[in-house]
Amino acid sequence: MNRFFLSSLVTVVFLFESIIVQLFSYPLFDVYLLVPRALLIVLVFMTMFVGQAEGMTYGFIFGLLYDVVYTEILGAYTFAFPLIAYLVAKAMNILHKNAWTASFFSIVAIASVEWYTYAIQLVISGTTMSAPTFFQVRFLPTLFIHTIVILLIAYPLKQTLLKWGEKQDESSPM
């Protein structure tokens, strides 16, 4: 596998988040707002199966890109993504690395990022959504869809990342 596999994977996922929202922008059943968080899933899996340094660096770079290009609120994701990578790496000191823990942590990460962005929007008065509405309309459907997606991709994603990590270790002369 190519040296640039990881960076191109993250870039493509990053670009697809925006495109997918644009192509399927209707709320589901006219009510539910789905927010793609595929980047976060890749980030958590990467931290676990490739390494903490990679996770935090990619988290920082793509968090910054997310802020500059999409939300125009600088800092929010730049701070959140590396922090999540860091916490996941710390939690791995006590837990086993496998597809199940990775899936679990991805879901936890999505949930916490959703609440975190909601809190920021409330503080800067960027939304008038009440907490119960947020919970029903945004939080639950997003979490539900991502749980399904994670269960589908967890194992192949883990295998790909592990294989890539090993290749990199072999090829590096140090």
């Binding site: 925006s18 929202v21 644009q22 999409y70 939300t71 125009e72 962005t117 960027g126 939304t127 945004r138």
Partner: peptide, 15 residues
């Protein structure tokens, strides 16, 4: 041509 939308969905913006 619209080539993207804010995936964060708090502020509805198009690119």
């Amino acid at each position: 041509t619209v080539i993207g939308r804010n995936p964060d969905r708090w502020k509805e913006t198009l690119i």
